[in-house]
Design a protein around this nucleic acid. Structure first.
Lengths: 156, 156
DNA sequence: CTTTTTGCAAAAGGTTTGCAGATCA
DNA sequence: TGATCTGCAAACCTTTTGCAAAAAG
C-alpha cells in the first residue's frame, strides 16, 4: 500500500467521521459552523489530548478561546471527547470515539508531551473498590517520566 | 488497651512527630510559628488529603489563605507533604511520612470525600513504561465512584 | 535587633458568562 | 426570520506576589 493511497484513505475516513459527528450534533439541536467543524477535524485527526490553547494554535482560522471552551463543553456533554487532568493546572481533551478504547498516558515531566499506553489491568482493582461499597466506579491512571528526546537534550 | 490509653499514646506520638517536623524545618532555616505548627498538627493528625480551604477551616486560629499557601510550599519543598490532583480544579495535600506508604485514593464523585486504598500492583506496569525508554517514571492512580453514604442519600 | 512570617490587597493564570452583533438554517 | 453562535470584555476562582507591619529567635 503506497503512502499516497494510505493517506487518501485516511482522509476519506476522517471526512466520514466529521460528518458523523456533525450529524450527532445536529440531532442534539446544534448547528454546523466553520469553527465547530474545524475543532472536530483537529480532534479527530490528531486525537489529543490537547489543552484549549493547543487547540486554538491548531485552528486554521482565528478563534476566540471562549468559543473553544463553549464547543468543548458541548462535545463533552455529547460524550464525543473526554477530559484529562495531568495535574499541571490545565485541562486537556481527547477524542473519545470507539477507535480509541480505554487507555492511559505517559506524560513527560519536562516537555509535557503525552503518549498512549495500551496496557491496563487495573480493571481487576476496580472490582475490589466495588467490594468496598462504591458504585459507578471508574479510574484514572497516569504515568510520569522523562522521554527519550528530553533525556538527550538534558545530557547535551 | 482502653480507649483512653490508646488516645494518650496517640497524642504523645503526635507531639513527637510535630517536634520532629519542626526540627527539620529549623535546620532548613525556617522559624517555628503558631500557625505553622497548627498546620503540621492538622496534617499529622488527619493526614489528608486536604484542599487549602479545608486546611483553613480546620485551623484553631484565624489564618490567611496566603499564609497557608506559603507554608504548604515549604512543606512540599521539604517533602513533608505530597500534592494530589483529583481533577476538580483544587490542589490537595497530604502528609507524606513513612507511616503513609505509597497508596492510592478512591474519590466519591458526589461528596468528594476521599478514602485510602492499600492496593497497588501498578509497579509492574511502571517497568513496561521504562522499557519504552522513559526515565524517572512514577504514576498516579485514582479511582472514582459514589460512596455508600451518598448512595443512601440519593435513594432517599 | 535582624530575619522570617504574616495579612492585606493586588495580580496572575485558566475558565466562565453576559451581551450585542454575526452566522446558520 | 428566528434560532444558535461568536467575539469581546468583564467576572470568577484558585493561587501567587509585593509590601509594610508583626512575630520569632
Amino acid at each position: 500500500m503506497s503512502q499516497t493511497h494510505q493517506s487518501t484513505e485516511r482522509l476519506l475516513q476522517l471526512a466520514q467521521q466529521v460528518e458523523a459527528a456533525i450529524g450527532q450534533l445536529r440531532e442534539a439541536g446544534y448547528k454546523n459552523t466553520r469553527k465547530r467543524q474545524a475543532l472536530l477535524e483537529i480532534l479527530l485527526r490528531e486525537h489529543g489530548p490537547f489543552s484549549v490553547e493547543e487547540l486554538q494554535q491548531r485552528m486554521p482560522i482565528e478563534c476566540d478561546l471562549a468559543t473553544i471552551y463553549r464547543n468543548i463543553a458541548i462535545f463533552e456533554e455529547q460524550k464525543m471527547i473526554t477530559a484529562c487532568d495531568f495535574g499541571d493546572g490545565l485541562k486537556r481533551y481527547e477524542w473519545a470515539g470507539e477507535e480509541h478504547e480505554h487507555h492511559h498516558h505517559i506524560i513527560c515531566q519536562q516537555c509535557r508531551k503525552t503518549d498512549h499506553l495500551d496496557l491496563c489491568f487495573v480493571g481487576e482493582l476496580e472490582k475490589l473498590v466495588r467490594e468496598k461499597g462504591y458504585t459507578a466506579v471508574s479510574h484514572r491512571l497516569e504515568f510520569y517520566g522523562i522521554c527519550q528526546r528530553c533525556q538527550r537534550k538534558r545530557s547535551a
